[in-house]
Amino acid sequence: MENDSKRETTSEHINLKVIGSDKNEIAFKIKRTTPLQKLMDAYIEKMGFERNSVRFLFDGQRLVGSNTPQDLEMENEDIITAASEQIGGGF
């Protein structure tokens, strides 16, 4: 999608890893200014998860789709955690 000259500009793109609760990693490369919704959708689709059962966290803070890597001051190779719904009642 992006042209070659942009791809070379490392400051414009960022490599991010999403780690699931099963510790599996998936790497993504996205523009610093792209909303993370795109990354989340791609992850959910790739993993075959149900949308409502996954929460994405960065440094413990919940991500929303409109956040961009730039907003969150993300750095290259930063890790996003994909956590699953937790439920509990007792026994």
Binding site: N52, Q61, R62
Partner: peptide, 26 residues
């Protein structure tokens, strides 16, 4: 609010007898 979208599914974990989920607790 707080970057947490509370869905009806989450609210329904508060019906008597149901197990609470992480969204409600957080």
């Amino acid at each position: 609010e707080f970057n947490i979208p509370i869905k009806r599914h989450d609210i329904r974990t508060l019906i008597n007898g149901e197990w609470l989920n992480d969204e409600i607790i957080n």
